[in-house]
Amino acid sequence: MSLQVVTANRLDDGLVVFLTADGGWSENIDQARVADGKEAGNALLAEASVPELDIIIVGPYLIEVEQQDGGLVPTKYREILRTKGPSVRQDLGYQAG
């Protein structure tokens, strides 16, 4: 089975965020709630897609992750880039801090 987390973009600043265990949103993928399998992933996505969240986040969707060196790492290159911030401007996004 594949491990999945929900990701979205936060509306107030556009940063990538991940659904956490307490139902909040974090910029840190290691704080994401992990679903194991298709049914658990669909339930997680349903929780992240309630209309009340439309004022906090936009575009929630599932991504596949794997455990590496004690942390979560996306399996797709696109998602790896999203967790690091813009790749063309090193003065923006997560890498600027």
Rank of each mutant, 00 (worst) to 15 (best):
P51N: 02
G71Q: 03
Q67L: 09
V16F: 05
D54N: 10
L3S: 14
R78M: 05
D36P: 03
L19F: 14
A40C: 06
V6L: 08
V65L: 10
Q68W: 08
T20P: 10
V50D: 07
Q4V: 07
I63T: 07
V65Q: 05
F18E: 01
I29C: 02
R82V: 02
I55K: 10
Y61H: 13
D30S: 10
T20H: 01
G97Y: 11
P74D: 00
R10T: 04
N28F: 00
V73A: 05
D91V: 09
Q31F: 05
E47W: 00
G23V: 01
G14H: 05
P86D: 11
Y77G: 01
D91I: 13
P86E: 03
E27F: 02
R89V: 13
G37S: 11
E79V: 00
I57A: 01
V73H: 07
G14A: 12
T7Y: 02
T75E: 09
G85L: 07
N28C: 06
V58L: 05
E64P: 09
V16W: 07
A32R: 01
D36T: 12
G37P: 12
N9G: 13
V6D: 10
D36E: 15
Y77E: 08
A96F: 11
A21S: 14
D30T: 11
Q4G: 04
L72D: 00
V88R: 11
T20R: 09
T83Y: 09
Q68K: 14
N42Q: 14
N28D: 14
T83G: 03
D12Y: 07
K84V: 07
K84T: 07
Q31V: 00
G70M: 10
N9A: 13
G71M: 08
Q68A: 15
D91T: 15
V16N: 13
W25R: 01
L45S: 02
Q67W: 08
Q4Y: 08
L53W: 02
S87G: 14
D13T: 14
T20S: 11
E52W: 00
T75K: 14
R82N: 04
V58E: 13
T7I: 11
I80D: 02
G24R: 03
A8Y: 02
D91M: 12
V73D: 04
D13S: 13
Q67V: 13
D30E: 07
Y94V: 12
R82S: 04
A96R: 08
T20A: 10
E39H: 03
V88D: 15
S26R: 06
A8F: 05
G14K: 04
Q31K: 11
E47A: 15
S49P: 04
A21K: 14
P86C: 03
P86A: 06
V65H: 04
D30Q: 11
G41W: 01
G93I: 08
G37K: 05
E79F: 14
L15Q: 13
R33S: 13
L19K: 05
A40D: 12
L62E: 08
V17P: 00
G23L: 02
G85W: 06
D13C: 11
G97D: 11
S87A: 14
V50F: 00
